[in-house]
Design a protein around this nucleic acid. Sequence first.
DNA 1: GATCGGTTGTGAACCGGTTCAGTGAACCGG
DNA 2: CCGGTTCACTGAACCGGTTCACAACCGATC
Lengths: 359, 359
Amino acid sequence: MNRFTIICITACRVNPDSLRGIVKHRTTIRELAEYTGLSPAAVSYALRGKQVSAATERRVREAAEKLGYEADPIARALAGGATAVVGLLVGSLADFWTQELVRAVQRELYGAELSALVADADGEPARELELAQRLVDQRVDGLVVVPIGPASGGWASIARQLPVVTIGDELPGVAPAGEVVFDNELGVEQALQHLSGLGHRRITVLSWAVETSPERDAERAAALSAAALGLDCRVVPCAYSLNGSQPLAAELLDDPGRPTAVLCLSDSIAYGVYAACAELGLSIPGDVAVAGFGDHPISRLLAPPLTSTVWDVEQAAECATSFLSQAIAADGPQATLREVVAPVLAVRASTGPPTPRRG
Amino acid sequence: MNRFTIICITACRVNPDSLRGIVKHRTTIRELAEYTGLSPAAVSYALRGKQVSAATERRVREAAEKLGYEADPIARALAGGATAVVGLLVGSLADFWTQELVRAVQRELYGAELSALVADADGEPARELELAQRLVDQRVDGLVVVPIGPASGGWASIARQLPVVTIGDELPGVAPAGEVVFDNELGVEQALQHLSGLGHRRITVLSWAVETSPERDAERAAALSAAALGLDCRVVPCAYSLNGSQPLAAELLDDPGRPTAVLCLSDSIAYGVYAACAELGLSIPGDVAVAGFGDHPISRLLAPPLTSTVWDVEQAAECATSFLSQAIAADGPQATLREVVAPVLAVRASTGPPTPRRG
DNA sequence: GATCGGTTGTGAACCGGTTCAGTGAACCGG
DNA sequence: CCGGTTCACTGAACCGGTTCACAACCGATC
């Protein structure tokens, strides 16, 4: 059998202009240098307003405008510059409040001309540090963390490499660039006082299943015991989502000796309690009073509307972004910026006085 | 006044090993080359299993393992390789269903060892393309888009540069790498049939305020008119969020000639209607029946539980990620992968027969 | 034994910025 | 007029990979 080899040589002289729009060519700094008659180094400096005369800077800027030059973020990152990307690491994206926080942070970052590389530990504390390292490898300029894991040495090492801002819980011993702290201690105290005031004595706290450091654990225990004067109060760790809390709540409430009130440290958890109550035919707040934490926009639409502790996500996001921007601009270790967000208890119909049990 | 100049010279001989853990040093490909006695090029090839003998490949892999070598994603990206980052561009992160989708996509991407650069157009269609371009500039390997804007020429150009997968609406004329399509036409038809079957005649559809292309607009109009046989059906565009829909719904319902049923093309919109009803003292479904779209996990917890059209976010996310992975691996234009997700109407207590009006 | 084709591996250029050391020119006080 | 600064800019190295063109080597074929 014969084999034919067909050779086809086409001489092709393409006018570069005709490629515009088909293959996009980014203007490089060297082209800009040639155009302005300067060296690439001078252009690089000029664009960042350093070490050049005002006249040159203006000339370069005009040329950049004209040629539509924009620095390649990847090349800039490799050379050690900023990427304008920050990492946003959350403990559990399944939690509705966290979702709202992500939205708010995204909006703020857009205003600050930053992009976000979002990572979700999906409720597994062990995954947190690995994801953080991955973000660092991507050369993010900074990190916003909503921690659920313990504050290990790995965090300290990361915080030394780039600015880290925490939202919600702290990472003790890490010395981040900024902290937006929720005063959980006070929040829990207020909520328990409210329930206690209504006459509840047997209360269960559904806490998030966070692998806290000893200090934070102690903090929380202290808050609980302090506020719990005279209260029969149990703390149960719980998955940070609706699907996680529903079965746990069902088990907890399907018992004549059930608590008269449940305080959930996240609205997502409270939603699971609602679902469990519906399943068991228990009425809220008649059979069991329920309070949440975070105050998701939907909570006031539930039946009954959910009593919840308001944590302002907009404020938290604004602070965190501002802290991070400052730390990135400062470009060196500074004192930790800190903002404590005060809890406000929004009392709604899901909490009322306990009804006396027959038996 | 005297000036003292203090010169302090400290001869400092640092053992490189002692710096470990203080400043993290990434092993580079050249170090790995030196260690194995090969050239950097050979190592690069070996790590990607190309053009090298099996023995060499094994040797390099072992050395990489031993030295803890991991390729720098930034350098790789600059050299034209893959970044293992994909862009996730959503029309409105304020929409709860979109939030769920983002969560699901994140989880899938984690499984595929990809990271996500998330961008939110925040309900503004004009912002969509700009954000997409920004993601392309960041050298993402691909793009997952939940579009709200029109399919302009800009999209076609982007789809030619990298794989694009759409979820939900399509971008006609763009030829993306993959499409996960929601059959909105059928979904709307089913919902309207349900309402019609209950006896509703005057129905308002609160649609998302999407700047659709003519084709999609026509599609939707066709679906509506086809299903709306005998129905007095009005379509009103609405912001894609609770806060956006509540005032609109309040205005719409504060009118004796109000519709007997409202079909919302997103659960977020329906939540706004619930809020408006609470405000106006209208009962659901007695005074007005309400149906949603998307079936957010919370919807079944509302009072009354919301009738909604189920769009499975897990399935959509899985498909989209799979399509994108395939397209990235194929590394060249392929036929568009396509999956149509069928709507399933979950009937709950928020829809019932209309009550006759007095007057 | 010369030629050929295929496999492995190398050297160097390249991606597109940043930055350091160095050079000339202008400037200044003595 | 001279030594010392400061200013504005340049050349070249560098970040850490990828890839192209080519060389060395091998066995098989004519």
